[in-house]
């Protein structure tokens, strides 16, 4: 019997594997730094005084430079509590409508055979390709006619219309994969079609609803266009618009600008920390493979 030996061939291929792994990490780590550093830089400097911001922008705040004066200015000058409240109301209400109405429509499209089913589905999802902003001129006219300008309801309705196509598309695709048996079983158990939707289908699609929620939430929370056009009054400003206008006024007060940016970033990062697993699982589950 020959004793197996580690040949030169085996050694080089092992070396190649290790250096390959190292370069993969070098690229990924390098780009991760590029992606995160600017955000980190802003948040770090928001805790410094003016001298610290300009004198040593790249070092962490320390006793000599630490200051919350930026945050003090933001809290006294801007009505960020109101803006947050507005953003929260608009985002939550829109999300609820998108998910609930979208799921109901998707359920009807996936579950029942009726005339124009296919046509209606195309009608609903064509909105994915056509950005709602192109209708802004008429949306503003419509809101003026409906007396909804400078109300949060205007934003909620527009964002719902904007979010429905993607929601209907993803949910219909997913609902088609649901077992027909379980709905039939509920029918035999005597549930009405409404209760089948509420008590059987909705619990089954919860994970996908979460994905659609995170997806739809980002553009709503971050939007500048519609708040600027439909609801720019002080009482209805959202965070994004509020930050934009606040910074416009306080361009010379860097501490305040950095603090305002950080205040706008933090909740998003917090939510992301909570839901990133769901968001990424949703994206990678093929729900958006088109």
């Amino acid at each position: 019997m020959n004793t197996p030996v580690r040949t030169a061939r085996a050694r080089t291929s092992r070396l190649r594997r290790i250096s390959g792994t190292a370069s993969v990490h070098a690229v990924l780590l390098g780009y991760t730094l590029i992606a995160v550093f600017p955000v980190f830089l802003v948040m770090m400097n928001s805790f410094k005084d003016r001298r610290g911001i300009f004198g040593e922008p790249l070092s962490l705040p320390h006793a000599g430079t630490f200051s919350l004066e930026g945050y003090a200015t933001v809290l006294s000058e801007g009505s960020f509590a109101t803006y947050f409240g507005n953003s929260l109301i608009v985002t939550v209400a829109s999300l609820f409508l998108i998910l609930f109405l979208g799921a109901a429509a998707a359920h009807a499209l996936a579950e029942y055979r009726f005339r124009f089913n296919a046509l209606l589905k195309i009608y609903m999802i064509v909105g994915i390709m056509v950005p709602i902003r192109l209708g802004t001129v008429a949306i503003l006219k419509l809101m003026v006619d409906l007396n909804l300008v400078n109300t949060l309801l205007a934003l909620i309705l527009v964002y719902t219309a904007q979010g429905l196509p993607v929601a209907v598309f993803i949910l219909t695709e997913f609902m088609r994969t649901l077992s027909r048996d379980i709905k039939d079983c509920a029918r035999i158990d005597g549930l009405s079609e409404y209760r089948i939707f509420l008590e059987v289908v909705l619990p089954l699609i919860r994970p996908v609803l979460a994905t659609v929620a995170v997806f739809s939430m980002i553009p709503i929370w971050n939007d500048l266009w519609f708040p600027l056009i439909l609801a720019s009054s002080d009482a209805t400003k959202t965070v994004t618009l509020g930050v934009q206008q606040f910074i416009g006024q306080f361009t010379v007060n860097w501490g305040a600008v950095l603090a305002a940016l950080s205040i706008a970033i933090l909740p998003v990062l917090g939510l992301y920390a909570l839901f990133s697993r769901q968001l990424i699982a949703g994206i990678t589950s093929g729900a958006v493979k088109g």
């Binding site: 109405l101 056509v130 709602i132 802004t136 006219k141 904007q162 429905l164």
Partner: peptide, 16 residues
């Protein structure tokens, strides 16, 4: 869903 989508997305686009 169809109504909200039609009134606030499709109609404005057609109106534009």
């Amino acid at each position: 869903a169809v109504l909200i989508y039609t009134i606030f997305s499709v109609y404005p686009l057609a109106e534009s």
